[in-house]
Design a protein around this nucleic acid. Structure first.
Lengths: 222, 222
DNA sequence: CCGACTTTGTGAACAGGTGCACGAGCGGGC
DNA sequence: GCCCGCTCGTGCACCTGTTCACAAAGTCGG
Protein backbone atom coordinates (compact mmCIF):
# COMPACT_ATOMS: atom_id res chain seq x y z
CA UNK A 1 0.00 0.00 0.00
CA UNK A 2 0.95 3.62 -0.32
CA UNK A 3 1.32 3.31 -4.03
CA UNK A 4 0.32 6.25 -6.14
CA UNK A 5 -2.75 7.63 -4.39
CA UNK A 6 -3.16 4.85 -1.89
CA UNK A 7 -6.12 4.99 0.44
CA UNK A 8 -5.11 7.92 2.54
CA UNK A 9 -5.76 11.32 0.95
CA UNK A 10 -8.34 13.09 3.05
CA UNK A 11 -10.55 15.33 0.97
CA UNK A 12 -10.26 17.96 3.68
CA UNK A 13 -8.01 17.78 6.70
CA UNK A 14 -9.54 16.45 9.90
CA UNK A 15 -9.40 19.08 12.65
CA UNK A 16 -7.37 18.33 15.72
CA UNK A 17 -10.43 18.64 17.92
CA UNK A 18 -12.19 16.01 15.89
CA UNK A 19 -9.26 13.62 16.02
CA UNK A 20 -9.36 13.79 19.79
CA UNK A 21 -12.99 12.76 19.77
CA UNK A 22 -12.73 9.91 17.29
CA UNK A 23 -11.51 7.45 19.95
CA UNK A 24 -14.56 8.35 22.02
CA UNK A 25 -16.89 7.51 19.18
CA UNK A 26 -14.91 4.40 18.50
CA UNK A 27 -15.35 3.17 22.04
CA UNK A 28 -19.03 4.04 22.08
CA UNK A 29 -19.56 2.24 18.80
CA UNK A 30 -17.87 -0.91 20.06
CA UNK A 31 -20.30 -0.87 22.94
CA UNK A 32 -23.40 -0.63 20.82
CA UNK A 33 -21.96 -3.15 18.36
CA UNK A 34 -21.82 -5.68 21.19
CA UNK A 35 -25.53 -5.28 21.68
CA UNK A 36 -26.02 -6.26 18.05
CA UNK A 37 -27.50 -2.92 17.20
CA UNK A 38 -27.40 -2.22 13.49
CA UNK A 39 -27.57 1.54 13.41
CA UNK A 40 -27.12 4.50 15.73
CA UNK A 41 -28.31 8.05 15.42
CA UNK A 42 -26.03 10.99 16.04
CA UNK A 43 -28.20 11.68 19.07
CA UNK A 44 -27.50 8.30 20.63
CA UNK A 45 -23.83 8.45 19.80
CA UNK A 46 -23.64 11.90 21.30
CA UNK A 47 -25.19 10.64 24.50
CA UNK A 48 -22.71 7.78 24.71
CA UNK A 49 -19.70 9.91 23.94
CA UNK A 50 -20.79 12.74 26.19
CA UNK A 51 -20.88 15.38 23.48
CA UNK A 52 -23.35 17.35 21.42
CA UNK A 53 -25.20 15.67 18.54
CA UNK A 54 -24.36 18.36 16.01
CA UNK A 55 -20.72 17.89 16.86
CA UNK A 56 -20.97 14.18 16.24
CA UNK A 57 -22.45 14.76 12.82
CA UNK A 58 -19.90 17.35 11.89
CA UNK A 59 -17.04 15.19 13.13
CA UNK A 60 -18.24 12.15 11.23
CA UNK A 61 -18.81 14.19 8.11
CA UNK A 62 -15.06 14.74 7.91
CA UNK A 63 -14.67 11.02 7.40
CA UNK A 64 -17.06 11.06 4.48
CA UNK A 65 -20.73 10.30 4.26
CA UNK A 66 -21.37 7.22 6.30
CA UNK A 67 -24.81 8.07 7.58
CA UNK A 68 -28.22 7.53 6.08
CA UNK A 69 -30.71 10.34 6.50
CA UNK A 70 -33.78 9.30 8.33
CA UNK A 71 -31.97 6.27 9.75
CA UNK A 72 -28.61 6.99 11.28
CA UNK A 73 -25.19 5.44 10.96
CA UNK A 74 -24.51 1.82 10.21
CA UNK A 75 -22.56 0.70 13.25
CA UNK A 76 -20.36 -1.88 11.59
CA UNK A 77 -19.54 0.38 8.69
CA UNK A 78 -18.70 3.28 10.94
CA UNK A 79 -16.51 1.16 13.18
CA UNK A 80 -14.61 0.06 10.11
CA UNK A 81 -14.16 3.57 8.89
CA UNK A 82 -12.96 4.93 12.24
CA UNK A 83 -10.68 1.94 12.68
CA UNK A 84 -9.12 2.70 9.35
CA UNK A 85 -8.90 6.41 10.01
CA UNK A 86 -7.29 5.94 13.40
CA UNK A 87 -4.83 3.52 11.90
CA UNK A 88 -5.93 0.62 14.07
CA UNK A 89 -6.06 -1.80 11.18
CA UNK A 90 -2.63 -3.01 12.09
CA UNK A 91 -0.68 -3.15 15.34
CA UNK A 92 1.73 -0.42 16.23
CA UNK A 93 4.81 -1.61 18.05
CA UNK A 94 5.21 0.23 21.35
CA UNK A 95 8.24 0.56 23.59
CA UNK A 96 7.99 1.55 27.24
CA UNK A 97 10.95 3.43 28.62
CA UNK A 98 11.32 3.51 32.37
CA UNK A 99 9.97 0.73 34.53
CA UNK A 100 9.29 2.24 37.89
CA UNK A 101 5.86 1.99 39.43
CA UNK A 102 4.11 3.54 36.51
CA UNK A 103 6.08 1.71 33.84
CA UNK A 104 5.28 -1.61 35.47
CA UNK A 105 1.61 -0.77 35.66
CA UNK A 106 1.59 0.23 32.01
CA UNK A 107 3.39 -2.93 31.01
CA UNK A 108 0.79 -5.02 32.77
CA UNK A 109 -2.13 -2.92 31.72
CA UNK A 110 -4.35 -4.98 29.50
CA UNK A 111 -6.34 -2.84 27.17
CA UNK A 112 -3.00 -1.38 26.29
CA UNK A 113 -2.31 -4.04 23.81
CA UNK A 114 -6.06 -4.26 23.40
CA UNK A 115 -6.53 -3.23 19.85
CA UNK A 116 -3.94 -1.75 17.62
CA UNK A 117 -0.97 -1.68 19.96
CA UNK A 118 1.58 -4.21 21.00
CA UNK A 119 4.27 -3.70 23.55
CA UNK A 120 7.47 -4.97 22.01
CA UNK A 121 10.10 -3.65 24.37
CA UNK A 122 10.65 -2.61 27.97
CA UNK A 123 13.65 -0.41 28.43
CA UNK A 124 15.32 1.01 31.51
CA UNK A 125 18.62 2.58 32.40
CA UNK A 126 18.93 0.89 35.78
CA UNK A 127 21.44 -1.92 35.37
CA UNK A 128 19.95 -3.83 38.29
CA UNK A 129 16.66 -4.18 36.44
CA UNK A 130 18.07 -5.54 33.22
CA UNK A 131 16.82 -8.96 32.31
CA UNK A 132 13.98 -8.76 34.78
CA UNK A 133 11.05 -10.56 33.19
CA UNK A 134 7.70 -8.86 32.94
CA UNK A 135 4.95 -10.60 31.04
CA UNK A 136 6.50 -12.07 27.90
CA UNK A 137 9.24 -9.51 27.82
CA UNK A 138 12.42 -8.85 29.71
CA UNK A 139 13.77 -5.43 30.57
CA UNK A 140 16.48 -4.29 28.21
CA UNK A 141 19.11 -1.61 28.39
CA UNK A 142 18.58 1.90 27.14
CA UNK A 143 21.91 1.54 25.40
CA UNK A 144 20.28 -0.87 22.99
CA UNK A 145 17.47 1.52 22.17
CA UNK A 146 18.61 2.26 18.66
CA UNK A 147 18.85 -1.37 17.74
CA UNK A 148 15.55 -2.25 19.43
CA UNK A 149 13.62 0.50 17.70
CA UNK A 150 15.11 -0.39 14.39
CA UNK A 151 14.73 -4.15 14.59
CA UNK A 152 11.20 -4.14 15.94
CA UNK A 153 10.00 -1.16 14.00
CA UNK A 154 8.91 0.67 17.11
CA UNK A 155 6.52 3.44 16.17
CA UNK A 156 5.49 4.75 19.57
CA UNK A 157 7.66 5.40 22.57
CA UNK A 158 6.10 5.68 26.01
CA UNK A 159 8.18 7.67 28.46
CA UNK A 160 7.64 6.66 32.07
CA UNK A 161 10.94 7.81 33.47
CA UNK A 162 11.67 10.46 36.09
CA UNK A 163 11.28 14.00 34.79
CA UNK A 164 15.00 14.67 34.89
CA UNK A 165 15.90 12.31 32.10
CA UNK A 166 12.71 12.58 30.06
CA UNK A 167 14.07 15.02 27.52
CA UNK A 168 17.17 12.96 27.00
CA UNK A 169 15.09 9.83 26.50
CA UNK A 170 12.85 11.70 24.09
CA UNK A 171 15.85 12.81 22.08
CA UNK A 172 17.13 9.27 21.88
CA UNK A 173 13.74 7.96 20.83
CA UNK A 174 13.52 10.57 18.11
CA UNK A 175 17.05 9.84 16.96
CA UNK A 176 16.21 6.15 16.85
CA UNK A 177 13.35 6.89 14.50
CA UNK A 178 10.23 6.74 16.64
CA UNK A 179 7.37 8.75 15.17
CA UNK A 180 5.21 9.28 18.24
CA UNK A 181 5.83 9.80 21.92
CA UNK A 182 3.49 9.50 24.84
CA UNK A 183 5.00 11.23 27.83
CA UNK A 184 4.06 10.39 31.40
CA UNK A 185 6.96 12.24 32.98
CA UNK A 186 6.11 15.58 34.56
CA UNK A 187 8.26 17.58 32.20
CA UNK A 188 7.81 19.67 29.09
CA UNK A 189 9.43 17.93 26.17
CA UNK A 190 10.43 19.39 22.89
CA UNK A 191 10.57 17.28 19.78
CA UNK A 192 10.83 17.98 16.06
CA UNK A 193 7.59 18.93 14.35
CA UNK A 194 7.55 15.67 12.47
CA UNK A 195 7.15 13.72 15.69
CA UNK A 196 3.78 13.53 17.44
CA UNK A 197 3.84 14.17 21.15
CA UNK A 198 1.12 13.79 23.72
CA UNK A 199 1.40 13.99 27.43
CA UNK A 200 -0.38 12.47 30.38
CA UNK A 201 0.35 14.48 33.44
CA UNK A 202 -1.06 13.39 36.74
CA UNK A 203 0.20 16.30 38.79
CA UNK A 204 -1.17 18.80 36.33
CA UNK A 205 -4.57 17.18 36.29
CA UNK A 206 -4.77 17.21 40.04
CA UNK A 207 -3.76 20.84 40.17
CA UNK A 208 -6.44 21.76 37.68
CA UNK A 209 -8.99 20.00 39.82
CA UNK A 210 -7.60 21.79 42.84
CA UNK A 211 -8.14 25.10 41.11
CA UNK A 212 -11.80 24.46 40.44
CA UNK A 213 -12.24 22.91 43.83
CA UNK A 214 -11.03 26.10 45.41
CA UNK A 215 -12.97 28.40 43.13
CA UNK A 216 -16.17 26.51 43.70
CA UNK A 217 -19.13 28.86 44.02
CA UNK A 218 -19.94 27.46 47.45
CA UNK A 219 -21.27 23.88 47.69
CA UNK A 220 -22.24 24.25 51.32
CA UNK A 221 -18.75 24.54 52.69
CA UNK A 222 -15.86 22.28 51.81
CA UNK B 1 -2.79 41.83 51.68
CA UNK B 2 -6.23 41.20 50.33
CA UNK B 3 -7.90 41.82 53.64
CA UNK B 4 -11.59 42.65 53.49
CA UNK B 5 -12.50 41.02 50.22
CA UNK B 6 -11.63 37.51 51.38
CA UNK B 7 -9.24 35.97 48.94
CA UNK B 8 -11.53 34.52 46.37
CA UNK B 9 -13.22 37.03 44.07
CA UNK B 10 -11.29 37.14 40.86
CA UNK B 11 -11.64 40.48 39.13
CA UNK B 12 -12.27 38.68 35.87
CA UNK B 13 -12.74 34.98 35.44
CA UNK B 14 -9.68 32.95 34.52
CA UNK B 15 -10.22 31.19 31.18
CA UNK B 16 -10.20 27.43 31.17
CA UNK B 17 -7.28 27.36 28.77
CA UNK B 18 -5.26 29.47 31.17
CA UNK B 19 -6.08 27.26 34.14
CA UNK B 20 -4.72 24.29 32.25
CA UNK B 21 -1.43 26.09 31.73
CA UNK B 22 -0.98 27.38 35.26
CA UNK B 23 0.44 24.08 36.49
CA UNK B 24 3.00 24.25 33.70
CA UNK B 25 4.15 27.65 34.79
CA UNK B 26 4.13 26.49 38.36
CA UNK B 27 6.44 23.62 37.58
CA UNK B 28 8.73 25.78 35.50
CA UNK B 29 8.89 28.37 38.25
CA UNK B 30 9.84 25.80 40.85
CA UNK B 31 12.70 24.79 38.61
CA UNK B 32 14.10 28.26 38.23
CA UNK B 33 13.50 28.95 41.91
CA UNK B 34 15.85 26.08 42.73
CA UNK B 35 18.57 27.80 40.80
CA UNK B 36 18.14 30.80 43.08
CA UNK B 37 17.10 32.96 40.21
CA UNK B 38 15.26 36.05 41.36
CA UNK B 39 13.30 36.97 38.30
CA UNK B 40 12.19 35.46 35.02
CA UNK B 41 11.01 37.08 31.84
CA UNK B 42 7.92 35.92 30.02
CA UNK B 43 10.29 34.81 27.31
CA UNK B 44 12.20 32.47 29.59
CA UNK B 45 9.07 31.16 31.20
CA UNK B 46 7.57 30.52 27.78
CA UNK B 47 10.61 28.53 26.78
CA UNK B 48 10.41 26.41 29.92
CA UNK B 49 6.69 25.82 29.67
CA UNK B 50 6.79 25.18 25.96
CA UNK B 51 4.40 27.95 25.00
CA UNK B 52 4.40 31.37 23.41
CA UNK B 53 5.65 34.38 25.40
CA UNK B 54 2.59 36.49 24.67
CA UNK B 55 0.44 33.73 26.03
CA UNK B 56 2.45 33.65 29.22
CA UNK B 57 1.97 37.34 29.75
CA UNK B 58 -1.73 37.22 29.02
CA UNK B 59 -2.20 34.22 31.27
CA UNK B 60 -0.33 35.79 34.14
CA UNK B 61 -2.17 39.05 33.69
CA UNK B 62 -5.35 37.25 34.72
CA UNK B 63 -3.79 36.70 38.11
CA UNK B 64 -3.10 40.39 38.51
CA UNK B 65 -0.01 42.43 37.89
CA UNK B 66 2.92 40.51 39.21
CA UNK B 67 5.50 41.53 36.68
CA UNK B 68 7.81 44.50 36.54
CA UNK B 69 8.30 46.10 33.16
CA UNK B 70 11.86 46.07 32.05
CA UNK B 71 12.67 43.32 34.53
CA UNK B 72 10.31 40.40 34.46
CA UNK B 73 8.45 38.47 37.13
CA UNK B 74 9.66 37.96 40.67
CA UNK B 75 9.95 34.21 40.89
CA UNK B 76 9.08 33.82 44.57
CA UNK B 77 6.17 36.17 44.36
CA UNK B 78 4.79 34.48 41.28
CA UNK B 79 5.14 31.03 42.80
CA UNK B 80 3.18 32.25 45.79
CA UNK B 81 0.47 33.69 43.66
CA UNK B 82 0.07 30.61 41.49
CA UNK B 83 0.18 28.38 44.55
CA UNK B 84 -2.65 30.40 46.04
CA UNK B 85 -4.60 30.48 42.82
CA UNK B 86 -4.30 26.75 42.26
CA UNK B 87 -5.36 26.10 45.80
CA UNK B 88 -2.14 24.38 46.77
CA UNK B 89 -1.78 26.30 49.99
CA UNK B 90 -3.34 23.41 51.82
CA UNK B 91 -3.50 19.68 51.18
CA UNK B 92 -6.49 18.17 49.46
CA UNK B 93 -7.45 14.75 50.75
CA UNK B 94 -7.55 12.24 47.91
CA UNK B 95 -9.16 8.81 47.75
CA UNK B 96 -8.18 6.21 45.18
CA UNK B 97 -10.93 3.84 44.12
CA UNK B 98 -9.87 0.62 42.50
CA UNK B 99 -6.51 -0.97 43.25
CA UNK B 100 -5.61 -2.99 40.25
CA UNK B 101 -2.33 -2.40 38.47
CA UNK B 102 -2.94 1.23 37.91
CA UNK B 103 -4.40 1.94 41.34
CA UNK B 104 -1.36 0.38 42.97
CA UNK B 105 0.98 2.43 40.85
CA UNK B 106 -0.91 5.58 41.69
CA UNK B 107 -0.88 4.76 45.39
CA UNK B 108 2.87 4.36 45.29
CA UNK B 109 3.49 7.25 42.99
CA UNK B 110 5.46 9.84 44.87
CA UNK B 111 4.91 13.25 43.47
CA UNK B 112 1.29 12.43 43.88
CA UNK B 113 1.28 13.51 47.45
CA UNK B 114 4.10 15.84 46.46
CA UNK B 115 2.59 19.20 47.03
CA UNK B 116 -1.01 19.91 47.82
CA UNK B 117 -2.39 16.39 47.79
CA UNK B 118 -2.52 13.62 50.32
CA UNK B 119 -3.88 10.17 49.74
CA UNK B 120 -6.12 9.40 52.66
CA UNK B 121 -7.95 6.30 51.48
CA UNK B 122 -7.60 3.30 49.21
CA UNK B 123 -10.90 1.71 48.32
CA UNK B 124 -11.79 -1.41 46.41
CA UNK B 125 -14.80 -3.62 45.93
CA UNK B 126 -12.85 -6.86 45.89
CA UNK B 127 -13.32 -8.50 49.28
CA UNK B 128 -10.06 -10.41 48.93
CA UNK B 129 -8.09 -7.20 48.83
CA UNK B 130 -9.60 -5.63 51.92
CA UNK B 131 -7.13 -4.91 54.65
CA UNK B 132 -4.18 -5.31 52.32
CA UNK B 133 -1.58 -2.77 53.41
CA UNK B 134 -0.11 -0.37 50.89
CA UNK B 135 2.19 2.34 52.16
CA UNK B 136 0.69 3.70 55.35
CA UNK B 137 -2.80 2.79 54.33
CA UNK B 138 -4.85 -0.36 54.11
CA UNK B 139 -7.41 -1.10 51.45
CA UNK B 140 -10.94 -0.44 52.61
CA UNK B 141 -14.32 -1.49 51.32
CA UNK B 142 -16.31 0.54 48.87
CA UNK B 143 -19.26 0.05 51.19
CA UNK B 144 -17.60 2.40 53.64
CA UNK B 145 -17.12 5.09 51.02
CA UNK B 146 -19.70 7.45 52.45
CA UNK B 147 -18.20 7.32 55.91
CA UNK B 148 -14.62 7.59 54.62
CA UNK B 149 -15.33 10.63 52.47
CA UNK B 150 -17.20 12.30 55.25
CA UNK B 151 -14.75 11.58 58.06
CA UNK B 152 -11.62 12.42 56.12
CA UNK B 153 -13.10 15.26 54.16
CA UNK B 154 -12.14 13.71 50.86
CA UNK B 155 -12.22 16.37 48.15
CA UNK B 156 -10.92 14.44 45.16
CA UNK B 157 -11.79 10.94 44.07
CA UNK B 158 -9.50 9.08 41.69
CA UNK B 159 -11.25 6.35 39.75
CA UNK B 160 -8.96 3.51 38.71
CA UNK B 161 -11.55 0.81 38.36
CA UNK B 162 -12.58 -1.17 35.29
CA UNK B 163 -14.73 0.81 32.88
CA UNK B 164 -17.83 -1.17 33.67
CA UNK B 165 -18.24 0.12 37.19
CA UNK B 166 -16.75 3.57 36.72
CA UNK B 167 -20.05 5.39 36.39
CA UNK B 168 -21.42 3.69 39.46
CA UNK B 169 -18.34 4.59 41.45
CA UNK B 170 -18.57 8.15 40.22
CA UNK B 171 -22.17 8.34 41.33
CA UNK B 172 -21.25 7.09 44.77
CA UNK B 173 -18.38 9.54 45.05
CA UNK B 174 -20.66 12.39 44.10
CA UNK B 175 -23.32 11.22 46.52
CA UNK B 176 -20.71 11.03 49.24
CA UNK B 177 -19.84 14.65 48.65
CA UNK B 178 -16.64 14.60 46.65
CA UNK B 179 -16.15 17.78 44.63
CA UNK B 180 -13.70 16.60 41.99
CA UNK B 181 -13.10 13.37 40.14
CA UNK B 182 -10.09 12.23 38.18
CA UNK B 183 -11.09 9.34 35.96
CA UNK B 184 -8.59 6.81 34.68
CA UNK B 185 -11.19 4.31 33.53
CA UNK B 186 -11.80 4.18 29.80
CA UNK B 187 -15.40 5.31 30.05
CA UNK B 188 -17.35 8.50 29.60
CA UNK B 189 -18.67 9.62 32.95
CA UNK B 190 -21.45 12.03 33.63
CA UNK B 191 -21.54 14.03 36.83
CA UNK B 192 -23.50 17.04 38.03
CA UNK B 193 -22.23 20.39 36.84
CA UNK B 194 -21.11 21.27 40.33
CA UNK B 195 -18.54 18.49 40.28
CA UNK B 196 -15.26 18.89 38.39
CA UNK B 197 -14.30 16.00 36.21
CA UNK B 198 -11.09 15.33 34.34
CA UNK B 199 -10.06 12.20 32.58
CA UNK B 200 -6.80 10.49 31.81
CA UNK B 201 -7.30 8.02 29.07
CA UNK B 202 -4.43 5.91 27.92
CA UNK B 203 -6.22 4.15 25.09
CA UNK B 204 -7.48 7.41 23.68
CA UNK B 205 -4.04 8.99 23.76
CA UNK B 206 -2.52 6.06 21.94
CA UNK B 207 -5.23 6.14 19.32
CA UNK B 208 -4.66 9.82 18.73
CA UNK B 209 -0.99 9.14 18.23
CA UNK B 210 -1.89 6.30 15.92
CA UNK B 211 -3.96 8.67 13.82
CA UNK B 212 -1.12 11.09 13.29
CA UNK B 213 1.34 8.28 12.85
CA UNK B 214 -0.73 6.98 9.98
CA UNK B 215 -1.38 10.37 8.45
CA UNK B 216 2.25 11.28 8.52
CA UNK B 217 3.29 13.16 5.39
CA UNK B 218 5.96 10.62 4.63
CA UNK B 219 8.99 10.41 6.97
CA UNK B 220 10.89 8.15 4.63
CA UNK B 221 8.61 5.14 4.84
CA UNK B 222 7.07 3.78 8.00
C1' DC C 1 18.60 63.67 36.14
C1' DC C 2 18.08 62.02 31.59
C1' DG C 3 17.90 58.98 27.78
C1' DA C 4 18.32 54.39 26.00
C1' DC C 5 16.92 49.90 26.61
C1' DT C 6 14.13 46.19 28.30
C1' DT C 7 9.94 43.85 29.25
C1' DT C 8 5.23 43.95 30.70
C1' DG C 9 0.21 44.46 29.85
C1' DT C 10 -3.34 44.74 26.56
C1' DG C 11 -6.18 46.23 22.44
C1' DA C 12 -7.24 44.32 18.17
C1' DA C 13 -7.02 41.16 14.36
C1' DC C 14 -7.17 36.40 13.45
C1' DA C 15 -7.99 31.37 13.77
C1' DG C 16 -10.31 27.50 15.21
C1' DG C 17 -14.08 25.24 17.24
C1' DT C 18 -19.08 25.04 18.69
C1' DG C 19 -23.93 24.92 18.19
C1' DC C 20 -28.08 26.31 15.94
C1' DA C 21 -31.20 25.85 12.47
C1' DC C 22 -32.64 24.25 8.39
C1' DG C 23 -32.54 22.14 3.77
C1' DA C 24 -31.76 17.62 1.61
C1' DG C 25 -32.47 12.94 1.26
C1' DC C 26 -34.19 8.49 2.76
C1' DG C 27 -37.51 4.94 4.61
C1' DG C 28 -42.02 3.41 5.84
C1' DG C 29 -47.00 3.45 5.97
C1' DC C 30 -51.14 3.77 3.57
C1' DG D 1 -46.92 5.73 -5.77
C1' DC D 2 -47.11 9.42 -2.70
C1' DC D 3 -46.75 11.74 1.49
C1' DC D 4 -45.00 12.15 6.13
C1' DG D 5 -41.67 11.96 9.51
C1' DC D 6 -37.05 11.24 10.74
C1' DT D 7 -32.14 12.14 10.66
C1' DC D 8 -28.04 13.54 8.29
C1' DG D 9 -25.04 17.16 6.38
C1' DT D 10 -23.72 21.85 6.54
C1' DG D 11 -23.90 27.14 6.14
C1' DC D 12 -23.65 30.63 9.42
C1' DA D 13 -23.25 33.23 13.54
C1' DC D 14 -21.08 33.10 17.83
C1' DC D 15 -17.53 32.47 21.05
C1' DT D 16 -13.16 31.15 22.94
C1' DG D 17 -8.51 31.26 22.53
C1' DT D 18 -4.14 32.73 20.10
C1' DT D 19 -0.95 35.90 18.28
C1' DC D 20 0.74 40.31 16.94
C1' DA D 21 2.21 44.72 17.78
C1' DC D 22 2.83 48.59 20.47
C1' DA D 23 2.30 51.96 24.23
C1' DA D 24 3.29 52.21 29.11
C1' DA D 25 6.37 51.73 32.67
C1' DG D 26 10.16 50.52 34.80
C1' DT D 27 15.66 49.91 35.22
C1' DC D 28 20.37 51.19 34.57
C1' DG D 29 24.47 53.68 33.11
C1' DG D 30 26.59 57.88 32.77
Amino acid sequence: MRALEPDITEPRPIPEATVVRLPLYYRALLEVAEQSVGTVSSEQLAELAGVNAAKVRKDLSYLGSYGTRGVGYDVAELVDEITRELGLTHDWPVAIIGLGNLGHALANYRGFGARGFRIVALVDADASKLGEPLGDLAIESIDDLDRIVDERNVAIGVIATPAGVAQEVADRLVAAGVGSILNFAPAVLSVPGSVSLRKVDLATELQILSFYQQHRPDTTRV
